[in-house]
């Protein structure tokens, strides 16, 4: 890649070529269209994975080119990775906890607040009086 440089104190900083920016922008718009398009198909439980893969490709493009991580100080990339690792631990462990509660908890699907209003998705006018009654 040919790198145009400015003179003076800032000579070492990398300036991304205009075409790279435009190509990344076009790819992001294309991938947005792809996300909307694939959402029209039903892959069952793969829906989430397909959408997240496309979103992650888009996010990588933004981070590497728009946020300059590709040519910038590697330490910034490390900071980003630390946040993503922390986030993964956070979500995965919460899901492990949440997913395994049924096996140790005998009380299930009972509202903590007995007076809590439960909406069942049907028109509120029909169901509200019935749902408002406390469960026993």
């Amino acid at each position: 890649m040919n790198i145009p440089q400015t003179s003076g104190a800032h000579a070492q900083s990398h300036i991304t070529p205009l075409n790279t920016y435009l190509a990344v922008g076009a790819s992001l718009l294309f991938l947005t269209a792809v996300t909307v398009w694939v959402a029209g198909f039903d892959f069952g439980s793969w829906n989430m994975i397909v959408a997240m893969v496309v979103a992650t490709i888009k996010a990588s493009l933004v981070v590497l080119f728009f946020m300059h991580l590709l040519h910038d100080n590697k330490f910034f990339g490390a900071i980003l990775l630390i946040s993503l690792i922390a986030l993964t631990v956070f979500i995965v462990f919460t899901m492990l906890d949440n997913g395994s509660r049924a096996s140790i908890n005998t009380i299930q699907m009972e509202e903590i607040n007995k007076k809590a209003k439960i909406y069942d998705g049907k028109p509120a006018t029909e169901t509200a009086p019935a749902a408002a009654q406390p469960k026993h």
Binding site: F76, I79, I82, S83, L87, I91
Partner: peptide, 29 residues
Amino acid sequence: DSEQQLDSAKMGMWIFLLTEILLFGGLFC
């Protein structure tokens, strides 16, 4: 030099962005 000053400022920003990712992380969770 100018380069080091810019890098230091960017590092501070990236650490702030880390806290932002964790803030939204709670919502994603």
